[in-house]
Amino acid sequence: MYTGIQHLHSGIAYLALLALVVVIIYMLIGSLSNREFTEKDRKIALIAFILSHIQLLVGLILYFLSPLGMEMLQSGSAMSDPAARLIALEHPLMNIIAIVLISIGYIRAKKPGASRARFRSIYMMYAIGLVLILSRIPWSAWLA
């Protein structure tokens, strides 16, 4: 079960990262072209929103099932080892913060207002979230 959830977490990560990049570019183009923010634009942003939240949920399940997560944090050994600290603390914490920022961007864009501000809300918050996610991916474990 643990291995299956690990593979699911890695697979959804590709989809979520791709969706975030596509939505950021799409919203940036929408903002620069001064077009109206439509229901279609909101639904496109919703795809990346949902995928990132599913990724977070699967990651949290994996964290509590994993021998690497809570156990390393409770033993105190994680803080002295940079790789262990990344997996036990930095990766989950930074990704939770990133998902909160993505959520803020999406929620702000749902409120009525100027189209350009709605586009900007999504592409800026999603981009900050994407940078935070990319900064804390355990690349050595992911690409292995």
Score class of each variant (00 low, 15 high):
Ala144Ser: 10
Ile122Met: 14
Ile104Arg: 01
Leu17Thr: 11
Leu8Cys: 09
Gln6Trp: 10
Pro138Thr: 06
Val22Glu: 05
Ala19Glu: 07
Ile97Thr: 10
Ser135Arg: 05
Phe37Met: 05
Phe49Gln: 14
Ala98Leu: 11
Pro82Arg: 03
Tyr123Phe: 15
Lys111Ile: 13
Asp41Ala: 09
Ala114Glu: 15
Asp81Cys: 01
Met72Leu: 12
Ala48Tyr: 00
Leu8Arg: 06
Leu8Pro: 07
Gly11Gln: 06
Leu86Ser: 03
Leu57Thr: 13
Leu65His: 01
Lys40Pro: 06
Ile102Gln: 02
Ile102Val: 11
Phe37Lys: 04
Val58Cys: 03
Ile97Asn: 01
Lys111Cys: 09
Glu36Ala: 15
Ile107Trp: 10
Leu20Glu: 09
Arg136Phe: 08
Leu62Ser: 00
Pro67Met: 01
Ile47Ser: 09
Ser103His: 06
Ile128Cys: 04
Leu62Thr: 01
Lys43Pro: 07
Met79Asp: 01
Gly105Phe: 02
Asn95Ser: 05
Ser52Met: 11
Ala19Asp: 08
Phe64Arg: 05
Ala109Lys: 07
Arg118Leu: 01
Ile87Gly: 01
Thr38Cys: 12
Ile47Val: 15
Met27Trp: 05
Met94Tyr: 13
Gly76Asn: 00
Gly129Cys: 03
Leu32Gln: 13
Ser80Asp: 06
His53Trp: 05
Met125Pro: 02
Asn95His: 14
Ala78Gly: 02
Ile12Phe: 11
Leu132Phe: 13
Leu51His: 05
Leu68His: 14
Pro82Ala: 02
Leu68Phe: 14
Arg35Val: 12
Ile99Pro: 03
Met72Thr: 05
Ile12Tyr: 04
Tyr126Phe: 15
Pro67Ala: 00
Glu90Ala: 00
Gln6Cys: 08
Ile104Met: 02
Leu56Asn: 02
Ile25Leu: 12
Met124Leu: 15
Ile12Gly: 07
Leu17Gly: 12
His7Leu: 14
Lys110Gln: 15
Ser77Leu: 01
Leu101His: 04
Ala117Val: 08
Ile99Glu: 04
Arg85Tyr: 04
Tyr123Ala: 09
Ile97Pro: 04
Arg85Gly: 02
Ile122Gly: 07
Val21Ile: 15
Ala84Gly: 00
Tyr2Trp: 10
Ile29Met: 09
Asn34Gln: 12
Met72Lys: 08
His7Ala: 11
Ser115Gly: 14
Gly76His: 03
